[in-house]
């Protein structure tokens, strides 16, 4: 399993990650980011892509 962490002090809720890893990230009705903190290993590529496109570089995989 992969543990995902988003630094919510950095996150500006742009939602770029949503398109790279839609199973992990979403913008709620208030335009705020929500995410699942544990993901299946098969999501690794998507999560890494989400990390890459985050303008605030706020997404991390926790070891």
């Amino acid at each position: 399993m992969i543990k995902v962490n988003v630094d919510m002090n950095k996150c500006q809720h742009y939602g770029q990650c949503v398109f790279e890893a839609p199973n992990i990230f979403k913008l709620n009705e208030d335009d705020k980011l929500e995410y699942v903190a544990t993901a299946d290993d098969s999501e690794l590529g998507n999560i890494e892509a989400a990390i890459d496109v985050c303008p605030m570089q706020a997404i991390f995989i926790v070891d």
Partner: peptide, 11 residues
Amino acid sequence: IGHRSVVQNYR
């Protein structure tokens, strides 16, 4: 300005 979901939905 604001409304990020609305903008994202145009993708």
